[in-house]
Deep mutational scan, measured.
Amino acid sequence: KNAAKIVNEALNQGITLFVSDNKLKYKTNRDSIPSELLEEWKQHKQELIDFLTQLES
């Protein structure tokens, strides 16, 4: 999976991924984040940080 797909899947579940101080963060109104999503974010962390940083610049 690529970073764009992961970010879109998160958005579809009401979760916004973003970068703050070079760290991957998220915002959501959900009570909890599915563990498989958290695991996927960890596996692709640097790719996600790079992707989101490019989007914001």
Rank of each mutant, 00 (worst) to 15 (best):
K42D: 13
A10L: 03
W41V: 05
Q46R: 09
N2T: 15
R30T: 06
T28Y: 04
E56H: 13
K27R: 13
V19S: 03
K42S: 14
L55V: 13
T28L: 03
S57G: 13
K5P: 02
K25T: 07
V19C: 05
L38W: 07
E36A: 10
E36F: 08
N8Q: 15
I49G: 01
A3E: 03
F18T: 06
K23T: 14
N29T: 14
Q54N: 11
N2K: 10
E39R: 11
I33D: 02
L48N: 00
N8K: 15
D50A: 12
L48Q: 00
S35P: 13
K25W: 15
R30M: 14
F51Y: 15
G14V: 01
P34T: 05
I15F: 08
L24W: 01
N22C: 14
L24K: 00
S32N: 12
K5D: 15
K5L: 14
I6A: 02
L37S: 04
P34E: 05
E9S: 06
E56A: 14
N2P: 13
N22G: 15
W41E: 00
A10C: 04
S32R: 09
E40C: 15
K5Y: 10
T28K: 03
S20F: 10
T28P: 10
Q43M: 14
S57F: 06
E47M: 14
W41C: 04
K1S: 11
V7H: 05
L17Q: 01
Q46A: 11
K5R: 15
K23Y: 06
Q46C: 08
L11Q: 08
K45S: 14
N2W: 09
E47R: 05
S35E: 13
Q54D: 09
K27W: 08
S57D: 15
L17K: 01
H44C: 06
L24R: 00
Q43V: 12
R30Y: 05
F51I: 03
I33L: 06
L48A: 00
K45V: 15
N2Y: 09
K42Y: 14
L52R: 00
F51N: 01
L37V: 05
I49A: 02
K25P: 00
D31N: 11
K42I: 15
L38V: 07
N22S: 09
Q13P: 00
D21I: 03
I49R: 02
L55N: 13
A4Q: 12
A4M: 09
H44K: 05
N29W: 08
V7L: 06
K1M: 09
K23S: 10
N8V: 11
K45M: 15
L24H: 00
A4E: 14
S20A: 12
K42T: 12
L48D: 00
Q43K: 13
L38K: 06
I6S: 01
V7T: 03
W41M: 08
L38M: 12
K45R: 13
L38Q: 06
Q13Y: 13
A4V: 06
E36L: 08
D21T: 03
K1Y: 10
A4T: 05
Q54G: 12
Q54I: 10
G14Y: 04
T16G: 04
L55A: 11
E40A: 08
Q13S: 07
L52G: 00
V19M: 05
T53D: 05
F18P: 01
L55M: 14
D21P: 00
E39I: 08
L37R: 03
A4N: 06
D50N: 10
K23E: 15
D21C: 11
N12K: 15
K27M: 09
I6R: 03
L55P: 09
F51R: 01
I15W: 02
E9H: 07
L55I: 10
E56S: 14
S32M: 09
Q54A: 14
N29G: 07
Q54H: 10
E39N: 09
L48T: 01
K1T: 11
N8S: 14
K45E: 15
G14P: 00
E39M: 08
G14W: 04
W41A: 02
L37K: 03
R30A: 09
Q43C: 06
Q13H: 14
E56K: 13
A10N: 01
I49P: 00
E40K: 09
T53M: 14
E39K: 08
Q13D: 04
N22Q: 07
N2I: 15
V7S: 02
L55H: 11
L55T: 10
I33W: 03
H44G: 02
Q43A: 14
K1A: 10
A10P: 00
W41S: 02
T16E: 14
L17N: 01
S20R: 07
L48F: 01
D50M: 08
F18W: 07
I33N: 01
I33K: 02
E56F: 07
Q13G: 04
D50Q: 10
D21Q: 07
L17R: 01
I15V: 07
K1N: 11
K27A: 10
F51W: 09
Q43I: 12
I15Q: 00
E47L: 11
I33R: 01
N22F: 06
V19L: 07
R30V: 06
N29R: 07
Q13E: 08
T53S: 11
L38I: 13
S35G: 11
I33F: 07
E47N: 05
F51M: 03
W41N: 00
H44F: 11
F18N: 03
S32H: 13
G14L: 03
S35C: 14
I33Q: 02
N2Q: 10
K42W: 12
H44W: 11
E36C: 06
E40H: 07
T28Q: 03
Q46L: 08
E56L: 12
L37Y: 06
D50K: 08
L52A: 00
K23A: 09
K27Y: 10
N8D: 12
K5N: 09
E47S: 09
S57Y: 04
N12C: 14
K45I: 15
F18A: 04
L11P: 00
H44D: 02
L11R: 13
L17T: 00
S57L: 13
D50L: 13
I49D: 00
V19R: 02
K25R: 13
L11N: 07
T28N: 04
D31P: 14
S20C: 15
P34K: 04
E9T: 07
R30H: 07
